[in-house]
């Protein structure tokens, strides 16, 4: 952007002006962001809050307009604090709930929705949370059902729901055998999500360890040419070697190595498997071993 700003002789005046306007807009945008950030920081600080409160308590004499602004400021500060608290909960608890409304006018239960928010971390970053929205569609029962969600297909959400959030039985009046266990459901679902994310991350680590991520690294010593995901639940790793051998590594839910096979020119190549796996039990150990080579 900045480079374009310099007046090019071949650009028409209109273009130059356009560039300038675009630049200024970008500047305004970034300044606005700064302002927001600084407001947020100031608002949430304890001293600001104290100042505001003191002045409202004392300020019996001050004029009304002043009071109104202070009231507004206090409200804003409350909002900011609420957001801060929410963020804190989310960062620490990793599963949080919220209330939402279904915009559908025909929605069940007046459109009340219980939202579950799952925070998943990967590569020391918070990923975009996964959401599961629950509603209560059953008349005369408070059983929950999954309404909408953003969980990928490879997480067996329906199976989990069938296990932990069964629908009330139609025949008898909600027998004890079909109790819903929301917390158990949430816990297992979170476990699945985190496991899934971890398996994906470990494949990235493997690639890095094998030197596949660095693009201009021409003389890499490893002869692994490709490591990729195979299978829907990110449980299988496909590997290719430069001499045409290819292999599969199957891992369990938590990244423990279940089995591995390498197919070479003349049938199975157990040598490579031994070299690659060594004595590792978990996939992370393979990563370490690859890094060590």
């Amino acid at each position: 952007m900045a480079a374009r700003d310099s007046p090019f002789p071949d650009l028409s005046i209109a273009d130059q002006l356009d560039n300038e306007i675009a630049n200024l807009r970008a500047q305004v945008e970034s300044l606005r962001k700064d302002l927001k950030l600084q407001t947020a920081t100031l608002m949430t600080s304890e001293s600001t809050r104290q100042l505001l409160q003191i002045s409202t308590n004392k300020g019996a004499r001050s004029n009304r307009a002043d009071d109104a602004t202070k009231q507004k400021l206090l409200e804003r500060a409350e909002e900011h604090n609420a957001h801060k608290q929410q963020s804190l909960y989310r960062a620490c608890a990793s599963i949080t709930t919220f209330k939402a409304r279904d915009p559908d006018p025909n929605a069940v239960d007046g459109g009340s929705i219980l939202g579950l928010r799952f925070e998943v971390m990967s590569k020391s970053r918070f990923l975009k949370p996964y959401y599961v929205m629950l509603n209560r569609p059953y008349s005369n029962s408070r059983h929950l059902r999954i309404h909408r969600h953003t969980v990928p297909q490879c997480i067996p959400l329906s199976g989990l729901a069938a296990r932990h959030l069964p629908a009330p039985s139609i025949k008898n009046d909600g027998g004890t055998s079909k109790m819903q266990d929301l917390s158990q459901f949430v816990r297992t679902l979170r476990r699945e999500l985190v496991r899934y994310q971890n398996r994906i991350a470990v494949i990235g680590d493997l690639r890095k360890a094998a030197g596949l991520e660095a693009k201009n690294d021409t003389d890499r010593e490893s002869e692994l040419v490709n490591i990729s995901l195979a299978g829907p639940m990110a449980k299988q790793i496909h590997m290719e070697w430069s001499d045409g051998r290819s292999g599969r590594l199957v891992m369990g839910d938590d990244g423990e190595i279940l089995k591995m096979a390498v197919q070479g020119q003349n049938g199975q190549d157990r040598e490579t498997v031994r070299n690659l796996l060594g004595r590792s039990v978990r996939i992370e150990e393979v990563v370490k071993q690859l890094e060590g080579v």
Partner: peptide, 22 residues
């Protein structure tokens, strides 16, 4: 809720708990 971070108008854009902005 499913929109990517870059999606315009997404309520939950940049929905990281570390985001201090209101």
């Amino acid at each position: 809720y499913a929109a990517g971070d870059k999606a315009e108008g997404a309520v939950v854009a940049n929905d990281s708990p570390l985001n201090a902005l209101l």
